[in-house]
Design a binder for these strands. Sequence first.
DNA 1: CGTAAACCTTCCCATGATGGCAAGGTCAAG
DNA 2: CTTGACCTTGCCATCATGGGAAGGTTTACG
Lengths: 133, 133
Amino acid sequence: MNIGAAAGRSGVTPKMIRHYEAIGLLRPAPRRDNAYRDYGPRDIHELRFIGRARRLGFSIAEIGELLALWRDRGRPSREVKRIAEAHIGDLESRIAEMEAMANTLRGLAAACHGDDRPDCPILDDLALGGVHE
Amino acid sequence: MNIGAAAGRSGVTPKMIRHYEAIGLLRPAPRRDNAYRDYGPRDIHELRFIGRARRLGFSIAEIGELLALWRDRGRPSREVKRIAEAHIGDLESRIAEMEAMANTLRGLAAACHGDDRPDCPILDDLALGGVHE
DNA sequence: CGTAAACCTTCCCATGATGGCAAGGTCAAG
DNA sequence: CTTGACCTTGCCATCATGGGAAGGTTTACG
């Protein structure tokens, strides 16, 4: 199967498939006489795995670990769970940060007239420069 | 004031100050005879503004708009509020995405034994490849 | 059979925001 | 006068992705 077909079947673009190969996330695909990469069902499976993991926000490095575990039948599920939980913690702290930003902004926006007048608590706050840090 | 002092006083690194100048976010700082950039209190003010806005998650492009409005006394607060609200919407949708990721992962992790056994719902789910999209 | 479209290949460049490092000039204190 | 702390520019790296050029291949159609 050509790279385009593999892309269509896995939801990962050809560009990204080559990229993942280049950075060592995927083993180099076998080439045909015309130098085209050739993919089989098992590769599609790995690509789908990667696509799904990316959509869940795992970094390439994390996916590398997960892939290694996935390829290794018999690995302890402990490892997998550890990685997933670390990632959840990561997501949670980033969410908390963004919540804090959004809350601050909501407060400022609520206090801003939003009309023709020039005075605006949003700019006033920014002008303070976040001294209290 | 040298760039290092300006950095210390504004919380923006010298590297970033030069960068902001290079991309046109800041007007080029005046140079002294020795070609050192020279900053005054007003520049510190702008740098603090930028730092605060970055910490609230505004992109450089958004900060450019906000800075222009800030420099323009007499601008209508409507514009500022519009930008802030657009950014809040942005934050909210990114938060929602990350919440969805975290929820999915929490469910998977809860169902994973996390012991020596190899079976693991997390990998099983990833292996499905997120077909339903 | 010929040609055009749709593939494939590699390579380089761009994004956005930041950091690091190197080579060279300058200034201040000892 | 030397040392160390500053400043300058410039290039490279990150992370994941996309765009595009230049060139070869295959497929499909008239």
